[in-house]
C-alpha cells in the first residue's frame, strides 16, 4: 500500500504535478467560493475561453503566454460587466456572446498571425507531463498571493458578495472589489492552463466550492473544506492518471464530481438522501430486503 503511494513520487514530473495539483485545488476552492456566491459560475467558463486571443498575441509578440492570457481574460469579464450594466441584457446572454466572440477572435488571430504551432490541445485539456519547475513556482506564488489577499480583504469581500448594495451604501469601493475578484478568477485559470486545461478549469473553480457549500454554514468554512476537497481531488486524480494511464485533467474533474455527488446525496443538512421522509422510506426498503 505504501509503495503504491510512494512509487509515483520517485518521478520528478509526478512530484511537480502533485505540487501543482495541491496548489490549484486550494486556489480553485477559495476563488471559486466567491465565484459561486456571486452567482457567476459561468464567468469561469467565459474567462477560460476568452484567454485564447491573448495567448495567440503573446505567442506572436514572444512574451509570456500567461500575461497575454491574463489580459484577455480580464478584458472579457469587463466586457460582460459592461454589457450587463449598460443595457437590459441579462448576464447569461452577455456571457454567451462574449465567450464566443473572444473565442472567434482567438481562432482568427491564430490563423492571421500564423501562430498555429501553439499546441491548442495542450491549452484546452492540459498536459501534466509538460509541467516545468517554473510552472510549479508560478502556481505556488499565485496561490500564496491570492490567499494572502483573501485574508487581508476577507471581511470586505464577504460583505460585498453577501450584500453588494449594502456594501456600496457603506462606502466600500465595490467596483474595485469586483475587479479584484475578476483578477483572482483569471489568475486561477491562467495557473490551471498547464494542468487541467482551460476547458476543465471550471470544475476546479466550481466543484470543490459547491461541495463544501452543501456542508457548512460560513464562508470561511466553505473555503477551508473546499480547499481540502480540491487538494484531495487533484492528488487522487493524478494517481488515477498515473496508474490507469488516464488524461490527468479529466481524471481530476471526475474525482471532483464524485465528491460533489457524495455531498449532494448525504449532506446532513441538505443531502437528498438525508431528508427525513426519504430516510424513513429507505429504511423501510432496507428492512424489506434484509428481512
Amino acid at each position: 500500500m505504501l509503495t503504491w503511494l510512494t512509487e509515483p513520487l520517485e518521478f520528478e514530473f509526478m512530484r511537480q504535478a502533485i505540487a501543482i495539483g495541491l496548489s490549484l485545488g486550494i486556489l480553485g476552492a477559495v476563488v471559486g467560493s466567491y465565484l459561486i456566491l456571486q452567482q457567476m459560475g459561468m464567468m469561469g467558463g467565459v474567462i477560460a475561453h476568452a484567454v485564447l486571443p491573448g495567448i495567440s498575441l503573446a505567442f506572436f509578440l514572444e512574451i509570456d503566454l500567461a500575461i497575454g492570457a491574463f489580459a484577455a481574460g480580464v478584458l472579457s469579464a469587463l466586457v460582460v460587466m459592461g454589457i450587463q450594466k449598460r443595457s437590459r441584457i441579462k448576464v447569461d446572454a452577455a456571457m454567451a456572446l462574449t465567450l464566443t466572440s473572444f473565442l472567434a477572435l482567438g481562432v482568427i488571430l491564430v490563423a492571421l498571425l500564423e501562430t498555429d504551432n501553439i499546441n491548442l490541445n495542450e491549452i484546452l485539456f492540459g498536459d501534466i507531463l509538460g509541467v516545468t519547475s517554473g510552472d510549479v513556482w508560478r502556481t505556488v506564488i499565485i496561490t500564496a498571493s491570492v490567499l494572502l489577499l483573501t485574508k487581508l480583504f476577507y471581511k470586505e469581500l464577504e460583505f460585498y458578495t453577501f450584500d453588494p448594495l449594502g456594501a456600496k451604501a457603506c462606502g466600500l469601493p465595490v467596483n474595485l472589489l469586483y475587479f479584484g475578484l475578476i483578477c483572482a478568477i483569471t489568475l486561477t485559470i491562467v495557473a490551471s492552463m498547464q494542468t487541467v486545461g482551460v476547458l476543465l478549469v471550471m470544475s476546479l473553480l466550481v466543484g470543490p466550492a459547491i461541495t463544501a457549500y452543501l456542508l457548512v454554514k460560513e464562508l470561511s468554512q466553505m473555503m477551508i473544506l473546499g480547499s481540502i476537497i480540491g487538494a484531495v481531488s487533484s492528488v487522487t486524480g493524478m494517481y488515477c492518471s498515473y496508474y490507469f494511464d488516464l488524461p490527468s485533467g479529466a481524471a481530476i474533474v471526475l474525482v471532483i464530481f464524485s465528491f460533489f455527488l457524495l455531498a449532494f446525496l448525504f449532506s446532513p443538512s441538505q443531502g437528498i438522501l438525508t431528508e427525513p421522509e426519504i430516510k424513513t422510506k429507505v429504511r423501510s426498503w432496507l428492512k424489506l430486503i434484509f428481512k
Partner: peptide
Amino acid sequence: QIDWDYPVT
C-alpha cells in the same frame, strides 16, 4: 434583495 442561502451566520 438578499441571497438568503449565503453561507453566513
